[in-house]
Design a protein around this nucleic acid. Structure first.
Lengths: 225, 225
DNA sequence: CGGCATCCGTGACGATACTG
DNA sequence: CAGTATCGTCACGGATGCCG
């Protein structure tokens, strides 16, 4: 086995690209930021990736300490991949990339795939400064995010068998596990505009394009802003 | 010509990777953040890149609006590549990648290339919050950086023929064009430790491992801190 | 000499088929 | 379900050659 291609530059950015510069790697991280995923889930949410490349990336990422592979408890035995703390620390990289890419996002092309939780990253930025568990309901699906939380993946004691850990992923598919501090219902266009930074979340609420329910302080702040 | 490989995902991070996800692209941006460069300079400071890949990347980047190609004024007619404002906006991406990669930088390997200005990105982070023109003198060479400046590349009026524009690159090779607010002299080990975040810049100054000269307010602050 | 274009060998990638 | 096996294609890295 050849010793893995490297830029061979004594530069931290180049070293980072040695680890995450390969095709698909950062998108796999984006998926895993939503929490532990099975191989098939990853393959389904990354249209275009071939099975062998996905398997190869997951192997490389595990070797580089970005992910761990864990076997799920008996009922439904399968393995899931999840980010380590080191892998979760890539969130700022994806945030920076996402912020830069917003300007070039444009309209959705016919060939573009969409997943509801891909809006989590930009919405997390739109909620910058806020704190709380937010559930987002789109036509495409429901997801949730933890504003103001730092990612902690695969680290710390597993606290029981609840579906949501107190220091779990910063966002995830499906409804929030616990009682959300706020529930946001909005259509795709509005979510897109907010994600692209064209529309401030508070303005969208004021314009009635986002319905905020829930009685947590976060919900109150969003309604009053 | 096939219409350029894309992830085809309606996600700003994926769109960003469509533009800058190819091998070498972000490292070319890192080089150009130091100011306009000729093809040969780029090729020399990116050991390992093949000539055709470099040319291809530069073409793609120009097409995507990241760079422009300009012909230098008569004495020394050659073209230089420089970042557009959009290209310069990738600085936060490189910062985030660099910050994440610091933890894995480790010791310098025998196969690693080094360039003095590669220390500019981490030092820029180490000088976060400060403002001023800083000249850094290493054994490997001299470079300068503009702490607290936002990058402005290829935009704005060309102000005369001075070697440094008022809103130029955030760092560059060689000595500072104007009178620097501070001059930092340090050895490679110290610079590495600071770059890796193991040693705070102020601590390094206190320990006498960095000699600060100059009488600007920045130099005073660094000496007194 | 700078700025590529061309050619070539190797490896990475993408699609499909197949297996424990 | 979770990958491995196979294969055609393309991207990459290295060398060389052309052209201003």
């Amino acid at each position: 086995m050849p010793p893995r291609r490297s830029y061979d530059q004594y530069c931290s950015a180049a070293r980072a690209l040695d680890s995450v510069g390969d095709r698909w790697t950062l998108l796999i991280v984006r998926e895993l930021l939503a929490g532990p995923r099975r191989y098939t889930d990853l393959h389904a949410d990354l249209p275009g990736v071939s099975t062998d490349v996905l398997a190869s990336r997951l192997r490389d990422m595990e070797r580089d300490g970005l992910t761990t592979r864990r076997r799920l408890p008996p009922p439904g035995a399968a393995h899931v991949y999840e980010l380590t703390e080191r892998g979760g620390a890539l969130l700022p990289v994806l945030q920076a990339l996402g912020a830069w890419g917003e300007a070039a996002l444009g309209e959705r092309r016919p060939t573009d795939a969409v997943r509801a939780h891909w809006f989590a990253l930009p919405l997390l930025r739109a909620l910058d400064g806020e704190t709380g568990l937010v559930e987002v309901r789109l036509d495409e699906g429901v997801f949730h995010l933890r504003a103001g939380a730092s990612p902690a993946h695969g680290i710390g004691p597993a606290d029981g068998d609840g579906p949501v850990r107190s220091d779990g992923p910063v966002y995830g598919d499906g409804p929030a596990g616990g009682e959300p501090d706020a529930v946001l219902s909005l259509d795709t266009d509005t979510c897109t505009a907010v994600s692209r930074g064209e529309l401030a979340l508070t303005d969208a609420v004021r314009a009635g394009r986002v319905v905020v329910t829930g009685d947590g302080p976060l919900a109150k702040r969003l309604r009053e802003a």
